[in-house]
């Protein structure tokens, strides 16, 4: 068989090169762990956003200037969601931008990979939200 060794070697090189490029691109297990942590942070940020809406609703539909601490939160919105990063203990940051906009920031390790690119401020690691009264 003349075609015996040529193509298989070529295919082998292509497959190995592709696997290498793939691993180089997605990163190893450590990157996977970072993504898992980011996912948990993103889930916390979304819960916090819901909490902010709840607080605003209880406050005559006006966005709060700052979040009350977990103990001081008003009864309608209790229990308050997690307010700090479970991995670094750094508190999440809530900022009121205007009467209809706010943002919540967290220490994302790969903010560029978060699945909400339109709301995500990649440089600051903040999710921008609109509040419609």
């Amino acid at each position: 068989m003349k075609a015996e060794s040529g193509p298989p070697i070529v295919i082998g090189i292509i497959v190995l090169a592709t696997i290498a490029a793939g691993i180089w691109s997605v990163g190893g297990p450590a990157t996977g762990k970072q993504e898992k942590r980011d996912k948990a942070r993103m889930s916390d940020v979304r819960n916090l956003s819901g909490h902010v809406i709840c607080l605003a609703y209880a406050n005559d539909k006006v966005l709060p200037d700052a979040l009350p601490s977990e103990q001081d939160t008003i009864a309608d919105c209790a229990p308050a969601p997690r307010m700090a990063d479970p991995f670094t203990q750094a508190p999440y940051v809530y900022e009121k931008i205007s009467d209809t906009a706010y943002r919540i920031c967290a220490g994302f390790e790969h903010p560029e990979l978060i699945a909400y690119p339109k709301q995500m401020d990649v440089d600051a690691g903040c999710m921008n939200y609109q509040y419609k009264r």
Partner: peptide, 8 residues
């Protein structure tokens, strides 16, 4: 996004 990372 990270979805394509999982696929990869």
């Amino acid at each position: 996004s990270y979805y394509s990372k999982r696929d990869m």
